[in-house]
Amino acid sequence: MSRTAIGNWLAAPIVAAIATICLAPLAILFLFSFFSVDFVNIVKEPTFKNYWTIASSSTYRGLIAQAFLSALVVVCITGVIGHPVAYFIAKRVKSAKSAFLVLLLVPLYTGDLVRIFAWRVLLGTEGALNTLLLWVGVIDVPIEALLFSPLATHVVLVYNFLPFMVLGLWLSYESLDDHLLEAAGDLGASGMSAFRRVTFPLTAPGLIAGGLMVFVMAVGEYLTPQLVGGASGITIISAINDLFGTAFDWPLGSAIAWTMLAILGFFFAASAVVLGRTNWARAVVGGE
């Protein structure tokens, strides 16, 4: 048997598993998005009604736009914070490099709920931060806006996803040649201009890879807004969630879900095109 044939046989069970557990459900979700609901029965006759509902509802359009905008904000913030951190780990840390990386990842292993719980304890009106500030005498009345606000949601989202951004950027910084920065300096570039014209473009693949991971996770996030966002905590995902639960409109829920997937797919494709032009992506995929 040739190597290729062995490889195909090894891959076959994985392809089968992903197809049945992941792709088949998504396919049936797609099918359902063209059905409709009559009281408690699902009418299995094709219709574009659900997609029309989404397009004509300013609530759904607003929530969808908000999900992507908010994810974009989180990507930008993690990108800005992530650059110095990734640079530091890749270029300044001589020994114990892996310790720095592992330490950054450790909070991730606490699980979604434990992390959100911790932030609730920290930010609540009667919580740790407010009572500490009151006790020390910095403030006289508790700051209520700390928890249950869009700000709280974004702080927690940045906290959740920063390690992924740093990982992506770190890979790029590791393969960045120090001599290029020295050369830029020798040629008279200031620190800022060297960053803008050398470092930033050369680490862009890491930014895109890390950014894509953060983006996907932030778009799909509903627990954090729900549990720390308060009144601002309604997201498109929680709206889909309601349609599957209490509202019992699976077809409309499916249509919104597929609208989200289609927009996400567009972002994946765009990133893949940009990443595909870089050398290391070709090295990973190999064969060309």
Binding site: I28, L29, F244, G253, A257, L264
Partner: peptide, 13 residues
Amino acid sequence: LIPKAILAMAQLI
């Protein structure tokens, strides 16, 4: 890459 909540609902159907 698929949001987990969406995958979850797809699996439920």
